Computed example of a mutant assay.
Amino acid sequence: MSRLRLVIFDVDGTLVDSQGAIVGAMTAAFSAQGRPAPARSDILGIVGLSLDHAVLRLAPEATPECRAALVQGYKDSYHATRSAQGAAVGSPLYPGVAQVLQALSRRDDLLLGVATGKSRRGLDALIEAHGLTGMFVTRQVADDHPSKPHPSMVLTCLADTGIDAADAVMIGDTTYDMEMAGAAGVAAVGVSWGYHPAKMLAPHARKLIDSFDALPGAIDDILGVPA
Rank of each mutant, 00 (worst) to 15 (best):
A218P: 04
L49S: 03
M170R: 01
I219N: 01
T175K: 02
V16Y: 05
Q99G: 05
H130I: 13
I127F: 08
L223M: 07
P216T: 08
G113P: 01
A29C: 08
D221V: 11
A188E: 06
A205V: 11
L123G: 04
I219P: 00
Y176D: 05
D52E: 14
D221A: 15
M170N: 03
A168C: 10
K207Q: 15
D144Q: 05
F212Y: 14
R35K: 02
D213S: 11
G134W: 10
L58A: 04
L208Q: 02
K199V: 14
A59L: 07
V55N: 01
G194P: 04
A88N: 03
D210Y: 13
D143V: 13
Y78K: 02
D164T: 11
D164P: 01
D167A: 15
H130W: 05
V71N: 00
A68S: 11
G96V: 10
L15T: 08
I219R: 00
P149L: 11
D210H: 12
A21V: 12
A69C: 06
M200G: 07
L208E: 08
M170G: 06
P38N: 07
A28F: 09
G96Q: 04
V186K: 00
Y195W: 13
T138N: 08
R40I: 13
L208S: 05
I22W: 06
A28T: 08
L6V: 10
D160H: 12
D42A: 15
I163V: 15
I8E: 00
E128S: 14
R67F: 15
G90V: 12
V169T: 04
S211R: 06
A181L: 11
G194D: 09
L49N: 02
T175V: 15
T161P: 03
V11A: 04
R206Q: 15
S41M: 14
M153F: 11
T133K: 01
V169M: 03
